[in-house]
Design a protein around this nucleic acid. Structure first.
Lengths: 265, 265
DNA sequence: TAGTGGTCTAGACCACTGG
DNA sequence: CAGTGGTCTAGACCACTAT
């Protein structure tokens, strides 16, 4: 009928995937519903099971459905997103004692847990060394790795890097880094956080990340490379956040620089 | 050997995928190199072609390799990222006449092209209506859809929404919206952009987006839902940016609110 | 033309879930 | 136990690329 319909010459697996997608979009299959089994789909469309299976794979890749071994394939539930953002570094949060993560978890009625995985002296990755302005050839940094959970589900991986010369022998080497956390210690070392720079990208997870974050196929990660600048514009701390994108979003609210009004004065 | 090695009981397809991944990480297969053909891999590992093919699919899903029909499977080239960020809304850019996109393209030695796809009065999507504070039940907005290209490769899809009541009969309904673009016109209507709010998320593309952005499998999109607030804190424009994540990153640089120093005065 | 990936078939066995 | 997805096999034909 329609002149430029892409359907007629499409292979069966894609055709099945599109029909299922339409059923989902029309609401015939709602979030949480179970799709017909692969064997049922195969029979329904007169195809081999592998062909029906390929159709399901296409939908999973798009993040629309999730297969559960032994149970079936289900339409994915849109998750309410955690919102991390520009206020993540705000002084106010330090004063309340509640970190932004705990605040957001509380707002969603979930329990927050933060595991300190490791605190080690290391050779920094190249991108970190560049931003922290340290050598990438020797063990010039301390790496603190933390994992964040909401209701015991992993939400983000956080890797913080600080210069070894400054962290050495301080609470920055300890899991409990004291009042106001590491930023409190860094302030005592003369670094007042004045500006932040967040570089944001998205990509598919590595197998390692997929395992740590318990990620289903078709779920990307959001990566934030954060640099803290002090009162002299010097970087003194760099953190890499890796968020699971199906449960996490970022929020940046910021003022726009105004031009000097031409008719003022 | 290693006590908790996950390898021994892994299915052949995953084992092949892991070995290929290691070859890539060790640099034996560099960016741009061609992998052994599926048939060659199958023979090398004593498996059926479909099993080798599954291994390649796993790597493609991770964004590590790209299959080219009739040619082979190649290790993906890391692309230099376009950086869009907080200065995207800066007044300075309006004064130079060069949009941030054209500036970034120029910096990378690429040609920029912007296509105005459509300018139509529409019923807004729910998320847009909520942020623009208009009705989602009638055609309360004007939707301007633009596509951005670098060297004729699609980079982002931009959908801007403005209240119909304000756009009606103005240059906001025209492809050429006049000096300083739409923000110039909105300023004449009394809206000075004072703050912006950007909500960022990542997800796999819809088939429609994948086609528009020419996306390979395993490449997610970055979505930015941008709200412009005027001098009264009222939203007057909302834009949805959909970026391809393999060529685009975001950059936010912002000041941190300082507490009143306890010993000042 | 030969070599590549894209898709399909028909069957098999395994692993997980639930009654 | 029956039903589900996860994986594999061995073969086939198609579509695209290069020579």
């Amino acid at each position: 009928m329609s002149p430029s319909a892409p359907s007629p010459q499409q292979p069966p697996s894609r055709r099945i995937a599109e029909e299922l997608r339409k059923r989902i979009e029309r609401g015939e299959l709602a979030a949480g519903d179970k799709l017909p089994s692969e064997r049922a789909l195969a029979e329904e469309y007169g195809a081999a099971r592998n062909t029906a299976r390929e159709a399901v794979r296409i939908l999973a890749e798009q993040g629309l459905v999730t297969a559960k071994h032994g149970k079936g394939v289900f339409v994915r539930q849109p998750q309410r997103l955690f919102r991390f953002g520009s206020d993540r570094y705000s002084i106010k949060n330090r004063e309340t004692g509640l970190t932004p993560f705990r605040l957001e978890a509380k707002r969603q009625g979930k329990t927050a847990r933060i595991d300190v995985l490791s605190i080690t002296r290391e050779v920094p990755p190249a991108d970190i060394a560049e931003r922290l302005q340290v050598s990438a050839d020797d063990a010039s940094v301390v790496h603190r790795e933390n994992h964040y959970f909401a209701d015991d589900e992993p939400v983000q991986i956080v890797s913080t890097y600080i210069r070894w010369g400054e962290a050495q022998g301080t609470l920055l080497m300890q899991p409990k880094s004291g009042p106001n956390g590491i930023y409190g210690r860094l302030e005592e070392l003369g670094h007042v956080m004045t500006r932040v720079r967040d570089e944001i990208s998205a990509r598919m997870p590595t197998p390692h990340e997929a395992a740590l974050l318990d990620l289903l196929p078709g779920v990307p990660v959001l990566e934030v490379l954060h640099t803290s600048l002090d009162q002299n514009g010097e970087p003194f701390e760099v953190t890499r956040y890796v968020h699971r994108a199906d449960q996490t979003g970022l929020l940046y609210e910021l003022p726009v620089e105004q031009p000097t009004p031409p008719e003022a004065q």
